[in-house]
Design a binder for these strands. Structure first.
Length: 268
DNA sequence: ATGGCCGGTGGAACCGGA
């Protein structure tokens, strides 16, 4: 089973590129991020014509996630639970789908973790950065509960986290940014420590492999990128991992997203 | 992380992104 994750930066602008890539890569499941569309306006027909079931969790203008699957969804859940009473979250960044395969159930999440910039003078007082850290706490708590099920679980998405210096072209310039600073890395590490395997790093130590290149300043031709799109796997999923791939070539297509797809192969 | 960007909104600049 091929499972992919891709921040497409707007379904309206990326529809034809997405269709072309689906035909070429033929993934079984895809998590999309930044659909930037409300559910009613999501262009479904060509995706469904390729044989995909489609579930969206959108909002107007920004954010928004979706799941595509050739197998039907048994169940779909939208949004991460809130931890604090009186808390609220208008942002559409999380969708979970449960799929039955011949060898059992697989849970797949498409998530779009908040960017968190700007961090400002005092990062812990930045609204955007504290929202990012709280969202990571909520993801941690949710995952801890799900791991009790002891099922294959795939958390696929745009994490907006640079895990290590070798995951970016210019680590010194990034250090201190919301994507690459101590509080962010501690929470990402804490999440992995409850028993998740990062698929790409389980397969290679290779440095300077990226999933995002800015549109500005010739970042792509200069290979000035960062690796921020990740797949975290429960041990039941990690046991079935049989390959990781980053489809870098789509960054060279006409009207590309600034992110490229990451794919894993699971033996199910 | 810059070199000159991109998408969405709404119908021009501006916000958000990473």
């Amino acid at each position: 089973m091929k499972i992919a994750s891709w921040n497409i930066n707007g379904i309206k602008a990326r529809h034809d590129v997405l269709i072309a890539w689906l035909k070429e890569a033929s993934p079984d499941v895809v998590g999309l991020q930044e659909i930037k569309s409300v559910d009613e306006n999501f262009p479904r027909s060509e995706i469904e014509a390729l044989g995909y079931n489609l579930e969206t969790h959108g909002q107007k203008g920004f954010n928004g996630v979706a799941l595509l699957s050739k197998l039907p969804f048994d169940e779909v859940n939208r949004g991460l639970p809130l931890i604090l009473e009186n808390d609220e979250d208008e942002q559409a960044r999380f969708i979970e789908g449960i799929i039955s395969t011949p060898s059992g159930v697989v849970r797949i999440v498409s998530l779009y973790l908040p960017n968190g910039n700007p961090v400002g003078e005092n990062p812990m007082e930045s609204d955007k950065y504290s929202y990012k850290l709280r969202w990571m706490d909520r993801l941690h708590a949710w995952t801890q509960e799900r791991l009790k099920l002891e099922e294959p679980l795939v958390l696929a998405g745009d994490y907006n986290v640079i895990p290590e210096a070798k995951d970016c072209h210019a680590p010194d310039a990034w250090w201190g940014d919301a994507l690459y600073r101590p509080e962010t890395l501690e929470k990402f590490q804490a999440l992995k420590n409850i028993g998740l395997t990062e698929a790409f790093r389980a397969s290679t130590d290779e440095p300077n492999v990226y999933t995002f290149w800015d549109y500005q300043a010739g970042a792509w031709p200069r290979n000035n990128g960062i690796r921020i799109d990740h797949m975290l796997l429960s041990c039941e999923a990690a046991d079935r991992l049989n390959g990781v791939q980053i489809d870098k070539y789509v960054r060279d297509w006409e009207k590309p997203s600034d992110h490229v797809p990451i794919l894993i192969e699971l033996d199910v």
